[in-house]
């Protein structure tokens, strides 16, 4: 899973997709995940990073993570040719 390389994300949590012209805002965790995706981290790497850093169980995070990925997909922020 990879975020489109031309997506700009700023420290305020503002995201701009230059392909579609949409902008978004995200919370710090969302920002963290998008940055990790941007740096080509795998799902496992992202999960272990979040579980190490935040107070959250694996099951719970997984549910939220897939939901978030689906939202990213819906808004066309992920590379199209990726298989998941």
């Amino acid at each position: 899973m990879k975020i489109k390389q031309n997506i700009a994300i700023s420290d305020s949590g503002f995201i701009f997709n230059p392909t579609t012209g949409d902008s978004f805002s995200t919370n710090p965790i969302g920002q963290e995940i998008i940055k990790l995706l941007h740096n080509s981290k795998t799902e496992d790497e992202i999960r272990s990073f979040i579980l190490e850093t935040y107070q959250i169980s694996r099951d719970h995070f997984e549910k939220d993570y897939y939901d978030f990925i689906n939202v990213l997909k819906k808004y066309k922020l992920l590379e199209e040719n990726e298989k998941d």
Partner: peptide, 14 residues
């Protein structure tokens, strides 16, 4: 100590 968790969200700014 670990940080407080919150579900990731993304909101379209329309």
């Amino acid at each position: 100590t670990k940080l407080q968790y919150e579900r990731p969200v993304l909101q379209l700014l329309n």
